[in-house]
């Protein structure tokens, strides 16, 4: 019998297509959107319009990266607005308008994100509570706490000037905020692809039981996912505060749904394990472009909510798991299902 050498011939391309299929729809959709936009609302693509939009797109992308890490562990995080609001108020409150205190303020903000993430992670990863309800609750607590803290501290106050002027800088003609987000995305993508930590993180998300049986520390990875997500939300809050300069009661509120929408339409598997940082970044771009286009076409913000909701639903129906499953089914010979005896063993073992 001859050896079967894996080659990247035609068969290799087919296999790579299966891998890519999950993330393909968002790239196609973004391209299509750009073309449609160029035809019906060319203003949306103009650089003046982008100068305004890119920072917001980046903030969405950073928050979505955090959400993506949680989704990779088959979870969901609804504490984003709480963390972002409290984080924003800390920047104003601790920073107290003084550039010298900016570093302390940013550290406080990131520590808050990490702390909330740790609480979420322990409740979900160790006590095995349901991620939806836990993060809803912690999000609510943090948000209310932030509101309490903000009274008197924040009203009329601005973030330290150094932060807002940094956010206005445009190295190479594009916003510094944008570069930060792009670097973060690249960093997450590289860590997931090129490090042992990233590989184990994916494995634990894809199948925690198999990961445990292969000798991995499952709980640690899950806790880490929520902590990292919290830190990324806090970073998003820093960027948003820099762009907005001041904090209003609705600060961060729109980041409950949008990051989830971005992750979902970027093709992440809600069953855990698979997601792409670059696709998530692109999805944030696409959602922003869509919003921008609708705005230029004169549609109200109300319409944007509807389009958002539809994008989540359509994204779930056409991308990610389904595309991968469909292509997989077409391209591989199906197998016999495992026998009931095996199922019985599982229930006995858990």
């Amino acid at each position: 019998m001859s050896a079967f050498t894996p080659t990247v011939g035609r068969a290799g391309l087919v296999a790579n297509a299966i891998v890519a299929a999950r993330f393909l729809p968002i790239w196609i959709a973004t391209g299509a959107l750009a073309i449609v936009s160029a035809i019906i609302a060319p203003d949306a693509l103009q650089s003046t319009s982008w100068a305004f939009v890119l920072p917001y797109m980046t903030i969405l992308a950073v928050a979505a990266l955090g959400q993506m890490l949680v989704v990779m562990q088959a979870g969901i995080d609804l504490s984003t607005p709480g963390v972002m609001f409290f984080g924003g108020t800390l920047l104003v409150g601790v920073g107290a308008g003084s550039n010298g205190r900016l570093a302390g303020a940013v550290i406080a903000c990131l520590a808050l994100g990490a702390g909330v993430g740790l609480a979420n992670g322990v409740l979900i990863g160790v006590l095995r509570l349901n991620p939806l309800i836990v993060t809803l609750a912690t999000g609510q607590i943090v948000l209310a706490w932030g509101v309490k803290y903000s009274r008197g501290v924040v009203e009329g106050g601005n973030v330290p000037e150094a932060l807002s002027s940094w956010a206005e800088r445009k190295p190479l003609g594009i916003s510094a905020v944008f570069w930060t987000g792009a670097a973060l995305t690249l960093l997450v993508a590289l860590v997931l692809r090129y490090t042992a930590v990233g590989r184990r993180f994916q494995a634990v998300g894809a199948n925690p039981r198999a990961a445990w049986m292969a000798g991995m520390h499952v709980r640690t990875h899950v806790v880490f996912a929520y902590v990292a997500a919290g830190v990324l939300y806090a970073l998003a809050a820093v960027l948003l505060a820099g762009v907005r300069i001041s904090i209003d009661p609705a600060f961060g509120a729109e980041y409950l749904l949008a990051p989830i929408a971005a992750v979902v339409i970027a093709g992440a598997s809600l069953a855990g394990g698979l997601a792409s940082a670059t696709s998530t970044w692109l999805a944030a771009l696409a959602l922003t472009l869509l919003t921008q286009m609708l705005r230029i076409l004169g549609l109200s913000t109300a319409m944007q909510f509807i389009v958002f909701g539809a994008a989540i639903l359509v994204g779930m129906l056409v991308s990610g798991d389904r595309v991968a499953a469909l292509l997989g089914r077409v391209l591989r010979p199906a197998e016999a299902p495992s026998r009931p005896a095996a199922a019985q063993t599982n229930t006995g073992a858990t």
């Binding site: 494995a203 894809a206 199948n207 039981r209 495992s338």
Partner: peptide, 11 residues
């Protein structure tokens, strides 16, 4: 139980 306990099917 290969897909349940041994492999990471999506990876």
């Amino acid at each position: 139980d290969r897909t349940g306990e041994s492999l990471f099917p999506v990876l």
